[in-house]
Simulated assay, not measured.
Amino acid sequence: MRWTIGILGLTHDHVWTHLSDLARRDDVRLSIAEPRAGLRAEAEGVHGGIRLYDDAATLLEHEQPQAVLVFTDNAGSAAFVELAASHGAAVMVEKPMADRLANAERMMVAAGRAHVPLMVNWPTAWNPAIRHALKLAADGEIGEITRFSFRGGHAGPRAFGVSEAFAGWLYDPARNGGGAYIDYCGYGASMARLLLGLPSRVQATIGRLRTDDSMVDDNAVLTLRYPRAMAVVEASWTAAGPVPQPGPVIAGERASLVVLPGAASRPARVLRVSSDTPEGEDLDIPPLSADEGSATSYFLTRLHDGHPIDGLVSARVGRDTQEILEAGLLADREDRSVSLPLPIGV
Score class of each variant (00 low, 15 high):
38 G>N: 04
12 H>A: 15
40 R>C: 10
12 H>L: 08
68 V>N: 00
14 H>G: 15
19 L>M: 06
48 G>W: 06
66 Q>K: 12
77 S>L: 03
27 D>M: 09
80 F>N: 13
47 H>M: 03
43 A>I: 07
47 H>P: 02
14 H>R: 14
20 S>K: 14
16 W>N: 04
60 L>I: 10
62 H>I: 10
43 A>F: 08
14 H>P: 01
11 T>Y: 04
74 N>V: 02
22 L>N: 05
27 D>H: 11
47 H>Y: 09
59 L>I: 11
30 L>T: 02
27 D>Q: 07
34 E>Q: 14
25 R>D: 05
31 S>Q: 03
19 L>I: 04
68 V>S: 01
15 V>F: 02
14 H>M: 08
39 L>E: 08
71 F>L: 07
51 R>N: 07
28 V>A: 09
78 A>M: 04
68 V>F: 00
19 L>R: 01
25 R>G: 12
62 H>G: 01
13 D>Q: 12
57 A>L: 11
59 L>T: 12
72 T>D: 06
62 H>F: 06
73 D>G: 13
68 V>C: 01
57 A>R: 15
17 T>Y: 07
27 D>E: 07
33 A>P: 11
60 L>V: 08
21 D>G: 11
10 L>S: 05
19 L>Y: 05
29 R>H: 13
45 G>L: 02
43 A>L: 12
56 A>M: 02
20 S>D: 13
17 T>E: 14
66 Q>G: 15
65 P>W: 00
30 L>K: 10
13 D>T: 07
50 I>M: 11
31 S>V: 03
18 H>A: 12
26 D>G: 15
21 D>N: 15
60 L>N: 01
67 A>H: 01
64 Q>C: 13
78 A>H: 13
10 L>I: 04
68 V>Q: 00
59 L>S: 10
30 L>C: 10
45 G>I: 01
13 D>V: 06
47 H>Q: 10
30 L>M: 10
76 G>P: 01
36 R>Q: 12
50 I>W: 08
40 R>P: 04
63 E>W: 02
23 A>K: 04
74 N>G: 03
45 G>A: 06
42 E>T: 11
39 L>C: 04
80 F>Y: 13
48 G>P: 05
44 E>T: 12
54 D>W: 02
20 S>H: 13
47 H>G: 06
21 D>Y: 08
72 T>Y: 01
33 A>G: 13
77 S>Y: 08
15 V>N: 04
75 A>V: 07
76 G>K: 04
34 E>P: 08
17 T>I: 15
24 R>G: 13
62 H>C: 15
41 A>E: 14
11 T>A: 13
53 Y>A: 08
67 A>W: 00
